[in-house]
Design a protein around this nucleic acid. Structure first.
Length: 548
RNA sequence: GCGCCUGUAGCUUAAUGGAUAGAGCAUCUGACUACGGAUCAGAAGGUUGGGGGUUCAAGUCCCUCCAGGCGCGCCA
């Protein structure tokens, strides 16, 4: 089912031949949608904008949808949708099992790489953002019909494991008895030991080689470390209510067997060349090389990420690759993507996007650190939110705060602001949903049940009703926009607008106290709003409670 | 040194080259024996960091300067 704005847009495009770029009107007197296509066409063809607008207005076939079109200012076309059409569209949206979300024209296989915590390290603020944003994008893309393959690229490989395993053997610890907390403590001791004791450091380096060679004892201890951390990750995911499971794990270790081939193939193709003992890719227009293999023969994360691209395109058959990783990594991903293109591992048809996000800052506006300079753990943040709000509200607060401003910007973690029940916050949206749910619950108690399948809106007389209805019909477009642009804050902004319009409607239009077809129509409007709010919040990974 | 990002009201922020830059918080003024006031209605608050330029139209594109943040050959 196409959304109302899409239908309208298609009617205009049939006349103009270009995307009319309909936008929600910026002012009530401009109607419901405004269109600047006449201005653009006039500029291209050297005609007068208002005359072009007039000819579009004379030709376009929208009388069944709109009030008479108006030309305003330098040549804008203002569009007002007929009230009966809005009423019908909302009822139809309620019948739609997808609540107005429009299935994509070209369903794709989308790999979303997110969360990526490190083994034997507590999850921290950076993991929090990646997890929340990635979870939201996965939900949105699934909702529009894409096949989403989540890939949790955990840090389960590398030199630190030589150090960890060696420390366990050195202390004579039973690795199978480790917990997340004791493994984190172990990591700190191992790090200190590595720095202070050259004999130990050398043993740790040999241990890395043993791990890579598949030494049985080393592998077994390594596996214990991973299992302990995995359990910790899953506790965090359960707490956050994100969809990641063990099935989504695809850590660095998984790519280890592929790294030799990655390096060899790049070198054979001439994409990578030896420089100062390291295998490097020099990307045209980029001063810094991408180091595929270090001069000691080891591999860094560039090789792993290249192997991951090969795997995701070649084996998982991805059409689109999305990396939800902090903004400071943008150069790295630009290099990796460029290299994969050069090597032919990332065909033109497959897109690769780095969704970089800004840092979480402390109250002082600087990188969020504890007093002794350590990264703040995820649990610390969530605990802080739960001190001032119930669990469900606290999670909504944290997630909404994270998703509601532009991703690439830093933001300050301010518990009081994000948990406020008034203003542009998660709790406010939950409250709006709870209020409208209450009306429907009371209606049901009086045997006034809205049947989604047969719902009809007979009248939409009040401005507050029309405003709410118009906003409801925009839902599908907003979700499509987020699926395409990967900007969750646009969905947040939409839902906040919907919630404030619901509150306005709630004040101005009594539902249960009105009668007959007005009451019936308003109940349908309430029900449709409840569904869109609940569906939208679910796409953000936020629970929509029936009561609070 | 090179590169990327950010700068919008006291604070937090939105804006796909389009009309008078849109919200929230805080402040001030109204509305409560309420379909849940955890709310709503309204007011005030802006030379979009400065300066040039392109355009019929610039917060948005280009140049330059200022301020802050982050990257830049062997950590991931």
């Amino acid at each position: 089912m196409a959304s109302l704005p899409e239908i309208l847009s298609a009617r205009f495009e049939a006349v103009t031949g270009v995307d009319p770029e309909l936008r929600p009107a910026t002012k009530p007197q401009f109607g419901h949608y405004q269109c600047n296509v006449a201005l653009r066409l006039a500029a291209d063809r050297g005609l007068k904008p208002r005359e072009v607008a007039q000819s579009i207005v004379d030709t376009v076939d929208v009388a069944d949808l709109c009030e008479p079109l108006e030309i305003a200012g330098p040549g804008f076309i203002n569009i007002r949708i007929r009230t009966d059409v809005l009423a019908h569209a909302v009822a139809e949206q309620l019948r739609d099992p997808h609540a107005g979300i429009v299935p994509t024209q070209k369903p794709a296989v989308v790999v979303v790489d997110y969360s990526a915590p490190n083994v034997a390290k507590p999850m921290h603020v950076g993991n929090l953002r990646s997890t929340i944003i990635g979870d939201c994008l996965a939900r949105v893309l699934r909702s529009t019909g894409d096949t989403v393959i989540a890939q949790n690229h955990i840090g389960d490989w590398g030199t630190q494991f030589g150090m960890l395993v060696e420390q366990i053997l050195d202390e004579g610890i039973d690795a199978s008895a480790l917990t997340l907390d004791t493994s984190v403590e172990l990591y700190k001791r191992a790090q200190a030991h590595f720095r202070s004791d050259e004999v130990f450091a050398e043993a740790a380096r040999r241990r890395v080689v043993a791990l890579q060679a598949g030494d049985e004892q080393t592998r077994a201890i390594w596996q214990c470390l991973i299992d302990v951390s995995k359990a910790g990750f899953n506790r965090a995911y359960a707490r956050l209510g994100v969809l990641l499971t063990d099935a989504d794990l695809a850590g660095e270790s998984m790519y280890n067997p592929m790294l030799d081939a990655v390096a060899a193939d790049l070198e054979a193709m001439g994409v990578a060349t030896m420089d100062a003992g390291a295998l490097c890719v020099f990307i045209p227009g980029d001063d810094a090389p991408l180091i595929v293999r270090k001069s000691d023969g080891g591999y860094g994360y560039a090789a792993t990420d290249l192997a991951a691209i090969r795997h995701r395109v070649g084996t998982l058959h991805a059409d689109r690759l999305i990396y939800v990783v902090g903004a400071p990594q943008s150069h790295h991903f630009a290099q990796v993507f460029a290299t994969a293109r050069l090597a032919g591992w990332l065909p033109e048809a497959v897109s690769a996007e780095h969704v970089g996000f800004g840092s979480v800052l402390g109250a002082d506006g600087k990188m969020f650190k504890t007093r002794d300079g350590k990264a703040v753990t995820l649990d610390t943040l969530l605990d802080a939110a739960e001190e001032v709000a119930a669990t469900e509200v606290a999670m909504a607060a944290v997630k909404y705060a994270d998703l509601s401003n532009a991703l690439h910007k830093d933001y300050v973690f301010d518990v009081d602001r994000m948990t406020a029940t008034t203003g542009d916050t998660g709790p406010y949206l939950q409250y709006a949903h709870a209020r409208v749910s209450q009306i429907l619950r009371r209606a049901a108690a009086d045997s006034l049940v809205v049947d989604d399948a047969t719902a009809v809106i007979a009248c939409l007389g009040e401005p507050a009703e029309q405003t709410l209805a118009l906003t409801l019909t925009r839902f599908g477009e907003v979700v499509a926009e987020v699926a395409s642009s990967l900007q969750p804050h646009k969905l947040c902004g939409y839902l906040f607008e919907l919630a404030t319009q619901l509150s306005s409607f709630y004040e101005q239009c009594p539902v249960l106290k009105s009668e007959d077809e007005i009451r019936a129509s308003r109940l349908v409007l309430c029900r449709a709003t409840q569904r869109v709010l609940a569906t939208g919040l679910d796409l953000l990974g936020i629970h929509a409670p029936e009561s609070m």
